[in-house]
Design a protein around this nucleic acid. Sequence first.
DNA 1: CTAACGCGTTAGTGGACGCTTACGCGACAA
DNA 2: TTGTCGCGTAAGCGTCCACTAACGCGTTAG
Lengths: 106, 106
Amino acid sequence: MDAYATSGWTALADPTRRAIFERLVERPYAVGDLAVGLPVTRPAVSQHLKVLKGAGLVVDRKAGKRRIYRVDPAGLAQLRAELDGFWTKTLAAYKAAVEQPEKGDQ
Amino acid sequence: MDAYATSGWTALADPTRRAIFERLVERPYAVGDLAVGLPVTRPAVSQHLKVLKGAGLVVDRKAGKRRIYRVDPAGLAQLRAELDGFWTKTLAAYKAAVEQPEKGDQ
DNA sequence: CTAACGCGTTAGTGGACGCTTACGCGACAA
DNA sequence: TTGTCGCGTAAGCGTCCACTAACGCGTTAG
């Protein structure tokens, strides 16, 4: 169920792409509507959506001439799980450092 | 308390930098120890740590000749909060779409 | 059928970025 | 002090990537 073309982290790295994603988080959007208000052209938005789709963060649906994009909860949940793992391990490392301060480093 | 040089998303975008961070999540490391096992040289690791530090994800501490890096829980928590916001809004958008399917798009 | 709309894709370009090599500085040992 | 270790930084280079302009395809309206 995994094996995405690119990582979610890499997909959300670009500021423009993050701005697009933050919009899609609110509600579904068509490509042209997304381009309005963004400092880039519509083709650029289309390319960014392709990356987000490749990372499993968004899905698209045809609606007549237009193409509606929305956030894919599954991809977002996977990122959340990965980050939660970082958080848990960080806290565990802190606890271990408190118990054995002299062995905190190496 | 914010105003980092670069975003946490951008900092964790690079695979090498993510590998470094995943190591630091386990326990604190010195720069040279991090470089061991990574396919890059020590200066490269040092530059990556600079970026991670600029994003508020890690902090450093001098220990004799060596410099110990560890994860900064505050920066990680901020990323987590941002992602949780995405998640909450996504679920809200889904709920709204179910209640008014015909107005899901625009 | 013809025209207009919305979108994806391509080619091309400028700038950002990750990496290495070389160098300089502070810290500890002899 | 002299030598060594660990680290940060500067310079240079190759590569990736975000962006635009131009084009082609499917869809709807007239």
